[in-house]
Write a protein that binds this DNA or RNA. Structure first.
Lengths: 330, 330
DNA sequence: ACAAAGACCGAAAGCGCTTTCATAGCTTCC
DNA sequence: GGAAGCTATGAAAGCGCTTTCGGTCTTTGT
């Protein structure tokens, strides 16, 4: 096998305790011995076993990242950046992708606990809703957790909230300024994030004086669903001239449906999405989308989590604003 | 802290050795004691510490997944499915996303080794090229590694090769059958995967009697690059009526460029991509794409890796065929 | 009836670290 | 000059498991 702390100690002519001390830079070590040990360390290429370290210190320097579905671009971005930030801080990430199957959450949590992770990051507001929340609550998790885009009532659950409400109100204002008067909202299951968007839509509509014309449709967060929901919407409300979708995949499905029904985008109908994923760039016309800043969100999440792990009592909730990115679909 | 094997042993009135035996179902245990221990196990909700287990047994039941860039849809799919298969086999995945920065590979490998991973999966053919290959080679990795879409010469490196060559020859045949006669190829840096595609293109061209009209352009694997490369291509070879791109993002950039230059797709020009990512679905018209079967690839990778870890000597290379998915861009 | 062979179980030694506690050697101070 | 206080170091006890080895108690064969 590889080198152990004993090899280093022997080579340097000191005890493993002293080696451990310089490894963790804690405790007093004379300049001379420190230098000697450092030298041995350098040339040996020794790296301490994180397993042994974790076992002895009760800190594994590992965190779990649980994503609803890693295949979704927005989540992949969040996981990517979260992992990156964690690695910068000396933590490794064990990632779990639920593939939309809530029942796997239970096993994953169990697994993460058995691996002594120091904390967990959940990407996605669905974790605040059912059945996820019940599963999490039943675990009585005592380790720090941060949920992206949601806030759970439990202690040691930290949250980051994107202010999507304001951004969606802006979306309405933008569309209104372009002359659109029949704006529909196409949203998903009522998570916090969805509710914020919906609220933003309503608020925006009130502000521009269209409060009486609220039109809300429902669609899961995928391409197909966006497609069929749009067909229904246009059949029942042919006067619609702008569709605000809660996420990009829905919006892309929406655009395709409109194309196939013979509408011109943005000529006749404007479409807006959210999360500013690469789908927004890929579709034609390119999609105007609410940027929910996955990078900033992840950075903040890791910052909060690490602070919580180190018992620095970070704030329980942080807020981040969103930015509307205009492209050719409006 | 949580329960340990001692608690279980005491509760069941046996030694920890015996508990360990039923936990790992190895060694002889009478039916009676086994039942007794099982019962205690059930109602306690005990889960063995994987850290301690790994330390004692030298098998961490953890594998590293190193992706060139998790943000790229194709890689996210691979990582997702690989993680899923691993979890089914009792392994956890530590994921590392290089974000296209080769220099981070070194640190990641070091980290994975210090965590005693039992194996590593690399997603992407770039790992067979420079500078990645040199970095890997310098490590003298003795643990099993599998590289998706590439094969490294080193021992204990296993590979899965997608037969993209045949698929790209099929692409040419398809386009030819649709009346296209000026087919250009838009590929990336010369990795094995890229070379296969290029070879497929050439072979296909020979077969349909267009061997004299090989036209190859170069473009990194992203949207922007595909866009600009296409502009150059069309400026220099306006007679082109079909563009075969080596990956979807390039193809999407290509389509956008064509749109902006006033060409109709597929009216005047056909475009094809590869990997069949969600970008292929998102863009308009939806993209004909070579499906490189990320799910089958990942399944196979995990199968090979686990066999290698358990010293079952799997074959060094496995091949998988690809499938051409026709959509509206051709 | 007695030896040989199993079946079943526990003691104890690690795995590679961290951490507590004790000790030895030096200063410092009145 | 001796008590008090540092600084620098090591011995040893864990952390929660696996695994080897040996021992006891039944079987089985003759």
């Amino acid at each position: 096998m590889s080198l152990t702390i004993y090899d280093i100690a022997k080579e340097a002519g000191v005890s493993i305790t002293t080696v451990s001390r310089v490894l963790n830079s804690k405790g007093e070590v004379s300049v001379a011995t420190r230098a000697k040990i450092q030298a041995v360390l350098e040339k040996s290429g020794y790296a301490p076993s994180q397993l042994a370290r974790g076992l002895a210190s009760k800190l594994s320097k590992t965190v779990g990242i649980v994503a609803v579905d890693l295949r979704a671009s927005h989540h992949a971005n969040l996981v990517h950046q979260t992992e990156y930030c964690l690695s910068q801080q000396g933590y490794s990430a064990i990632v779990c992708s639920l593939a939309g199957k809530p029942d796997r959450l239970d096993e994953y949590i169990e697994m993460l606990l058995s691996r002594q992770v120091d904390g967990i990051v959940f990407t996605g507001s669905v974790f605040a809703g059912e059945p996820y929340h019940s599963i999490l609550a039943a675990k009585f998790l005592t380790l720090p957790c941060v949920v992206l885009n949601a806030l759970l009532p439990e202690a040691n659950f930290f949250g980051i909230i994107n202010d999507e409400c304001a951004a969606f109100a802006d979306v309405v204002r933008l569309l209104y300024s372009k002359g659109r008067r029949n704006l529909a909202f196409l949203g998903g299951a009522p998570t916090l994030s969805e509710e914020q968007k919906r609220l933003g839509y309503r608020t925006g509509m009130e502000r521009v004086g269209l409060g009486k014309q609220i039109l809300e449709y429902h669609s899961p967060h995928d391409f197909e669903a966006g497609y069929t929901a749009t067909q229904a919407l246009m059949r029942e409300h042919p006067e619609t001239d702008a569709i605000i979708c809660s996420v990009d995949p829905t919006a892309v499905g929406c655009i395709h449906a409109l194309h196939h029904m013979g509408y011109r985008v943005p000529g006749q109908i404007s479409v807006v999405g959210a999360n500013n994923t690469d789908m927004a760039l890929a579709c034609y016309p390119q999609l105007t989308s609410v940027d929910t800043k996955p990078y900033e969100t992840s950075d903040l999440a890791v910052k909060m989590l690490v602070e919580a792990i180190e018992e620095k009592n970070p704030e329980k909730v942080k807020r981040l604003d969103c930015r509307l990115v205009q492209r050719h679909s409006t």
